[in-house]
Simulated scan of single mutants.
Amino acid sequence: MPAVDRAPHTVLPPTDLEAMLDLSTFLDHQTEPAALVGPDGQTVPLPLEAFTVLKEVADAMRQGRGITVAPVDQALTTQEAADFLGISRPTLVKLLEAGQIPFERPAGGRHRRVRLADVVAYQEAQRTQRRTLLDEMGGEAAAAGLYDASAENYAEALADARRSRTTGLHEA
């Protein structure tokens, strides 16, 4: 059996997306995992986890997006981690130094390494925090009547909401 390459591997979508669209549409209509059929006719059941990943890959490529496959224990450079998060390397370094994302320095090395799993965990925590804040802001806007305010009264209602939020923060 050949050795498995554990390095990240990026695949760009095909130039003709028609076949990817067909595959994605087919997979969207499947309710349970299918099977793979080899060139010799041998059939192997596709585990649910592999089926789910295949659906996600086909959907992303149908949208013209490339896919990178990497093990979660993959060590990233600070630049790779920053690129993954869509932030600058100096911003990432600030997050590392603030303890928001764990990192390691190889023995005798001065370069930081970040595990992909830790970067993904940080990204998920940020998403959750953003969703929570947006939900709170939406609730506050509804309570302040901003959704019901007319265009003429909106600026005044917004100013009132800001004042009450600022007063609440100072009292807390």
Rank of each mutant, 00 (worst) to 15 (best):
D16S: 02
P45G: 08
A75G: 10
L12K: 10
A70K: 06
A58L: 11
L54F: 01
Q42N: 11
L21V: 11
K55V: 01
Q79E: 09
A81P: 14
A35G: 04
A35P: 09
K55A: 06
P39V: 10
Q30A: 04
H29V: 04
A60L: 14
S24H: 09
L76E: 11
T68H: 07
L46Q: 03
M20P: 13
T52R: 01
L54G: 09
T25H: 12
Q30G: 02
D40C: 05
M20R: 14
H29P: 07
G41S: 01
Q74R: 13
P33I: 02
P14Y: 02
E18K: 02
T15E: 15
P13Y: 00
A81V: 11
V69H: 06
I67A: 07
L23W: 10
V72A: 11
V44K: 03
T43L: 02
D28E: 03
P47I: 00
Q63T: 15
F26G: 08
I67M: 07
F26T: 03
P14R: 07
A58M: 08
V53T: 12
D59Q: 13
G41V: 01
V37I: 08
G38F: 13
T52S: 02
D73V: 03
Q42L: 06
V57R: 04
R65S: 14
P14S: 05
A35I: 00
T78K: 05
L36T: 02
T43F: 01
Q74G: 14
P45C: 08
S24W: 15
T77L: 08
A81Q: 11
F26S: 10
V57H: 03
V72I: 04
T52Q: 02
R62F: 12
T15Y: 07
T68P: 13
G41K: 01
P45V: 12
L21D: 13
D40P: 04
L23A: 14
E49I: 00
E49K: 00
E80Y: 11
D59I: 10
T43D: 00
L12A: 11
L21I: 10
P39T: 15
D16Q: 03
L23P: 08
A81E: 12
A70G: 13
F26C: 10
A81D: 09
P45N: 08
L21C: 05
T52E: 02
R65Q: 11
A19P: 09
D16L: 05
M61Q: 08
L54R: 02
V69F: 12
L27G: 01
L27S: 02
V57E: 03
A81T: 15
T77E: 04
Q30D: 03
P47D: 00
D28H: 05
D28V: 11
A75E: 10
A75D: 07
P33N: 06
V57G: 06
I67Y: 04
H29I: 09
V69L: 10
A50N: 04
G41R: 00
L46F: 02
F26P: 05
D16K: 06
V44M: 01
L21H: 15
T68G: 06
V37F: 01
D22R: 12
A70Q: 05
L21P: 10
Q63Y: 12
T78E: 08
E49C: 00
R62W: 11
F26D: 09
V69R: 05
T78Y: 04
